[in-house]
Structures are given as C-alpha cells and as structure tokens.
C-alpha cells in the first residue's frame, strides 16, 4: 500500500492503481466519458484530467488523465484546479460542436458553466463522440466485429471496411454500452438488425417468443460448454419450467 493526496486528503491505494478508481472510492467526483469498468482505459475523451505534482517536483505540475494514471507514493492530485476546469470546459465545447443534440454532453457542459458555446464548424451533428467504449467492449469482450476506422476527423466506428461483418453475433453490447446512444439497431418480431446485418432471433422452443440470435448462442456455447439448444428457451418459459420442476419436489 502507498499513500497519496487527493484534493488535500491523504488516501491509501495500491501502487499503480488508477487515480480514477481511488478518487471514486474516496467519493471524489471526476467526470468521464470514455471510461467503462469492463474494459481497459483508453484515455480518449480527456474529461478526467486532473493536475498532479510531487513534493520533489519543485512546484512543477502536469495534467494527466485520471482513468489511466498509475498512483505512486506521495503523489499530490488536484481534481479541480483552474487549468483542469478550463480544459474540461473546452473539451465539452468541442464535443457540443460535434454533437449538438446530445443531452448527456449538454448537461455536463452546463455543470461547467458553458451556457453559450461559440464554436461551430459547418453542419456537424454526429451522435458518436468516439469514446471508444463500444469498440473496446466488442474487441476485448465479444468478437471484435467493430473497430475505429479512418483517421482524424474522418474517424468512425464501423465494421472493417464498413462491410457486413461475419463475426458480429448481434449481441447489442456495443449499442447498449454507448453513452450517447449513437449505435442504431432495430428489433422487430424475430429480427434484429445491427451494423447492416439482420439476425434471426431463434423462437423460444416452447412459446415461440424471440430469444437470441443463433450466432450469440453458438458463441456462448463455445465459451461455456452448454449446448446451443439450451439457450433457446425464453425467460418466462424457463421460469415456468423451473416452477413445474419444483412441483415435483416434495417440500
């Protein structure tokens, strides 16, 4: 264990633990947009900037991202200095210009006193803020069907070469973990469409209600050893089935 200071408070942490985790444990609020606990930090949004210094740095300090900066003994972390607040505010202004429609960003911007953003470029109205959560989720946890393609302002999240992916399993994890709901998907009846591919949802073997795409079941079965068919019963029928099993048990 090591000791460091966050906003004047001495706190304990593991060496190398990320500042954001420590701050959150200690109840210190640090805003984030690209952070997701399930995946490695990316450092893309820069909202979690904090100012760090050390007693031996002779007054010198630097801005770092809390989500991936490793804690070290005697580090002095300040989460709300003028420079930090100004940088976060500018970042929010840049994001508002990119996604004028986003509730999430507008709300955060208000917190930072950004009532009258002035920057605009053309007719931008992206929904995606390129926080990289969906791509990390899919690449690190699912099948790696999507990634960031192109560079710079052209950068976007898509399947490689924007072609229909044959590794996507239609699990929707990407869409559901997106903080700005930028990933479109559609589910009607037994069909679910995402990234230009339509998946058939296997009907429940008992009641016919939609369960999950066969592809997801196969992927799951590979990882867990359960039989693919075992996934094709809907929750309601499974619960009812459980209830029936209980009935045969002598309580």
């Amino acid at each position: 264990m090591i000791e460091l200071t966050i906003d004047g408070k001495r706190v304990q942490a593991r060496k190398g633990e990320h500042l954001l985790a420590i701050a959150r444990r200690e109840g210190v609020e640090i805003p984030t947009l690209c952070h997701h606990e399930a995946v490695e930090p990316s450092g893309a949004c820069r909202m979690c900037m904090v100012e760090v210094t050390r007693p031996d740095w002779e007054g010198w300090s630097k801005l770092v991202t809390a989500c991936n900066f490793p804690a070290e003994e005697d580090l002095i972390v300040r989460t709300r200095t003028d420079k930090v607040m100004q940088t976060r505010k500018e970042i929010l202004e840049l994001l508002i210009a990119r996604t004028p429609g986003s509730q999430l960003i507008a709300e955060m911007a208000r917190e930072y006193g950004l009532d009258h953003p002035t920057l605009t470029v053309g007719e931008l109205s992206e929904k995606c803020i390129l926080c990289d959560i969906c791509t990390r989720v899919c690449q690190n946890l699912v099948t790696g069907a999507i990634s960031r393609i192109n560079r710079g302002v052209e950068k976007e999240v898509n399947t490689p070469f924007a072609e229909v992916s044959d590794v996507c399993i239609g699990c929707l994890a990407c869409a559901k973990s997106c903080p700005t709901d930028a990933i479109e998907f559609k589910q009607v009846g037994l069909e679910r469409t995402i990234w230009g591919r339509t998946f058939d949802l296997v009907p429940c073997t008992q009641c016919g209600a939609p369960t999950l795409p066969k592809e997801q079941a196969e992927w799951l079965s590979e990882r867990t050893g359960m039989k693919v068919e075992e996934y094709f019963v809907c929750v309601k029928c499974k619960a009812a089935q459980t209830a029936r099993t209980y009935e045969n048990i002598a309580w």
């Binding site: 929707l172 369960t211 799951l220 499974k238 459980t242």
Partner: peptide, 26 residues
Amino acid sequence: LLEERCIRCHSCVAACPFGNMRPQAD
C-alpha cells in the same frame, strides 16, 4: 450484478437455465 461493468449483452439471461436472470428492456 456490477452495473458499471455490465455491457448488457444479455448472455446471462440466455444462460441461466432457471429463468432467474431477467431482462429489462434497455
């Protein structure tokens, strides 16, 4: 369920054989 880690893929819902993992739309 540690919500901060959940990616809402609903694999758990499909996996629980007893129907005890319940989906909630969105």
